[in-house]
Structure formats: C-alpha cells, structure tokens
C-alpha cells in the first residue's frame, strides 16, 4: 500500500473525457478485450520473449488512438515496477541454463525469463492503464456491473473514487498544518500521528453521515440508480472479435520469429 501519487488520478479523468474511436467503444468490449489480452500474455512459457513483442501493438494502439500522454503512462509504470523487478532480477542469478545463442553470446534461461517478466509487466500494466485512460472509472464500473460485478461493490468503487479527492484534500490540509509547525521534522511521533489520523477519521465519518443525509433527502432507499444507457453496438462486437482473433494468432505463432525469418531469408 505504498501508493503516494494519488493527486494525478485526476489526470486520468481528463484522458477519459476525451473523444476518439477508442473512447467511444463500449466499456464492456474494452474490459473483455483487455482481460483476454492479459490472460493470453500471461499464458506464455516463462522464457518467452520474442513472441510477446507483437502484443505491444494492443496498448500502443489504444494509447495512441485515445491520445493518452505516453510519458505519464511510463512514469506510472516506473513507480509500480519495483516488486516485479525485484523478484524477477533473481532469475538470471538462479537459472543459468544456456537457452539461446545470438551470434557468439550465450543467453541463459534466467536472463530470458527476466526479460520476459519485464515485458509481461509492461504489457499488462500498460494495457490496464490504457483501458482506464480511454474509459474512465465511471463507465468502466458501469460496464463491469453489467457484466456481473455485484452492485454493492460497484457502488463502493464509485463512492471511494468520489471521496478520494475530498478526504485527500482534508488530509493534505492537515499535513500542511503539521508541516508548518514541525520545524523541518518530517515525521510525527506515534502519539501525535494517532491523534491526527484519528481526527481525519472522525471527520471522514462525519462526512459519511452528512452524505447519507443528502442521499436520504433525495429519496435514497438503499439502491443507487444510474443513468447508464450505453449500448453494445456492432462496432464493439467487431472490436472484441478482432482483438480475440489477433491475440489467438499471436499466441499460436511467434510472429516476431516469423518476420525475422522472412527478413533474414530475403537478405540471404
């Protein structure tokens, strides 16, 4: 739970408010395709590298079509990478079976599987960020709900997301107050921390009580109704079908190797 970069969540809302063919696809179509993508990517043998490369096309196309700033995607990936990199970097040390030869260089299985882990990481994380970036949490959750996500959980996601900004602002104000009086000392003693966070907690609970009243005042009776009227159109069907076919082909045949052979064959 070491995420600290919450404020730029709002940036992803900005991306999602854009308009592009990728934005206009139904959230369900994008969610299904992205999930299939991730499953297929993860289903490769652990030392596979070259066959994974063509899969980059999916997040690249989604990101480019919807004009999501690619630098920010990379920055997010970098922030999230330590665990996968940390665990993966042992592979080269632990698995030294020679597995491939390129020219005069012998590559061990460990390096291949490490490269594979990094590539998988980039692919899966990028695809997920692109999905959210061109859909937005709200349409995504509404879509998932229609795919069977329990309503309680869908509503929970929406409320959490909504109050993230409000409570985070309160937290930021308190932090500023503390920093102003801390005289350069960054961290608090446990006792002061307990009372600060405790205050924040009580304020959050009061907030929940007031929100509940506002809901009741507008006729809330235990069910949050939404206006979602998105429709699954033929385009969405083509998109899902096209993606699944492409993923299947790229899973069955190593396209990179095929292209390589073709080029080398032509050159020779």
């Amino acid at each position: 739970m070491e995420s600290a970069t919450w404020p730029d969540i709002g940036r992803m809302d900005d991306w999602a408010r854009g308009d592009s063919p990728a934005h206009r696809l139904d959230a369900r179509a994008k969610a299904v395709a992205t999930l299939a993508f991730i499953v297929v990517v993860m289903s490769f043998p652990r030392r596979e590298v070259s066959a994974l490369v063509p899969f980059l096309l999916y997040p690249v196309v989604l990101t480019s079509v919807s004009r999501i700033p690619i630098g920010e995607i990379f920055r997010k990936m970098l922030v999230a990478s330590p665990f996968a990199v940390f665990v993966g970097m042992f592979n080269p040390l632990l698995d030294r079976q020679p597995a491939a030869v390129v020219g005069t260089i012998v590559i061990s299985g460990g390096w291949l599987s490490f490269a594979s882990i990094l590539l998988r990481f980039v692919l899966t994380v990028w695809a997920a960020l692109a999905l959210v970036g061109c859909t937005g949490i709200y349409r995504l959750v509404a879509g998932l709900e229609r795919l069977g996500l329990p309503r309680v959980f869908a509503v929970q996601l929406l409320f959490l997301y909504r109050y993230l900004f409000v409570i985070a602002n309160e937290g930021a104000r308190m932090k500023r107050g503390v920093d102003a009086r801390a005289g350069g000392k960054k961290a608090l003693t446990l006792r002061v921390y307990g009372s600060l966070i405790g205050h924040l907690l009580l304020r959050s609970m009061d907030r929940a009580e007031r929100v509940h009243r506002a809901m009741l005042a507008r006729g809330y009776e235990g069910r949050v109704a939404t206006l979602d009227r998105s429709r699954f159109r033929a385009d969405d069907g083509f998109f899902v079908f096209g993606c699944l076919t492409a993923f299947g082909v790229a899973r069955a045949w190593n396209l990179s190797a095929a292209i390589g052979r073709l080029v080398l064959g032509a050159a020779a």
Binding site: I137, Y138, A217, R218, Y220, A225, L227
Partner: peptide, 25 residues
Amino acid sequence: MVFQDPDDQLFMPTVAEDVAFGPLN
C-alpha cells in the same frame, strides 16, 4: 434540500448523474 457543503451532496460520478439521482429514486 441544498446542503451547506456541496461535496456532501454531489456524490455521483458526473453532474448529470448526480442531478438524476433524485428523479431516478
């Protein structure tokens, strides 16, 4: 009812959803 802190009242993801909350209920 219009509450003192609009953040308590506007809890839905978009303005339109929020305004629709009462009528849908």
